[in-house]
Design a protein around this nucleic acid. Sequence first.
DNA 1: ACCTGAACACCGTTCAAGT
DNA 2: ACCTGAACACCGTTCAAGT
Lengths: 196, 196
Amino acid sequence: MPKVSDQYREARRDEIARAALRVLARNGVRDTSIADIVAESGLSTGAIYSHFSNKAELARYVVGRFLLPRIDALESAGRSGQLVTPRQALQGMLSVFAEAGLSPALVLQFWGEAMVEPGLHDEMLRTAAHLRASLALAIGPWARTRTSDETDAASLAAETARSIAALAQGYIANTAVFGPRAVDEYLEGAAAVLAS
Amino acid sequence: MPKVSDQYREARRDEIARAALRVLARNGVRDTSIADIVAESGLSTGAIYSHFSNKAELARYVVGRFLLPRIDALESAGRSGQLVTPRQALQGMLSVFAEAGLSPALVLQFWGEAMVEPGLHDEMLRTAAHLRASLALAIGPWARTRTSDETDAASLAAETARSIAALAQGYIANTAVFGPRAVDEYLEGAAAVLAS
DNA sequence: ACCTGAACACCGTTCAAGT
DNA sequence: ACCTGAACACCGTTCAAGT
């Protein structure tokens, strides 16, 4: 298979996925029809279906490609041995998230969709696994200050990454439903509740 | 208007809503069609539409009626002056939630749906307002140990209630996506992250 | 190989006709 | 007044026919 053609296919899939994301951001998951994506992309129904076998596969591609922000800065900080605390990692992740322009409302809709679409759920777990691995790397130095055993440190980092994810999910769901809120305010409020 | 007839109407709406909830729990929000609810309820299409003007109104009714657990025990503890901390209130709420048999997956789907259905969003905010008021009442004595001014105590209780809600949402979204987790574990993990 | 767009099965909703 | 179920517009998906 010539590489040019593969590149072309991938570029075409990306073009369709970007058109889909624009409609999704505008109308939401439920109210985005294939007809809308056809109109937004300027292609035809059949053209979409010659690049994605169905709507679910397109959704999976969008999630895998655009739904999670990269947290390279955090990761390299951890790699260079800088002490990133879990709280700083959470704060950094939420800030990157906000800067990436990902709408909490759209993310929440995809979570809901994943409850009913196993392939999308799998893709989300895969994408989340990357994020957790990045987080674990970032807080690695912190974990090693808490235990001398390397295996213990790794599992502490992994468990902590799940808690960071849970807090991030809380922030996203809460701002989506109840309106925007500053990350710092949210962290202070949550800390006060848990310390009480 | 005779009262009997009103009661009958309400009972009929409830009967339809309960049938809808059974299908929703089984198939999820996206994959529940009116035809499914017709089959589950044993009524006809027109019968459903003579009690609810559309699918959205039925969803709103289900959410208002079944989506949030009652936390009477917590509320009366607060009313009687017992010192309920925010953390205990959160823990109590999540326990009641789990005992009520409300599937986190279904709740997450409704949150997503609310992002695209303004009437459902409104109903959710209304239901959440009741819950927050109950929480505020429950943690009232705690708030008054923190400040002598009654107005300050009320606003502290209200702000704290939002943070409790955010943490509860995090627990629900996290368990829905990543699988069940003990409430205590979640609370310990989150506290460790925020204290770091 | 990629693309076109008409055709098909199914969805939410309406409405004339029944009790 | 409540209910029936056929009819309608729209959705996701398929497929014969084009380049």
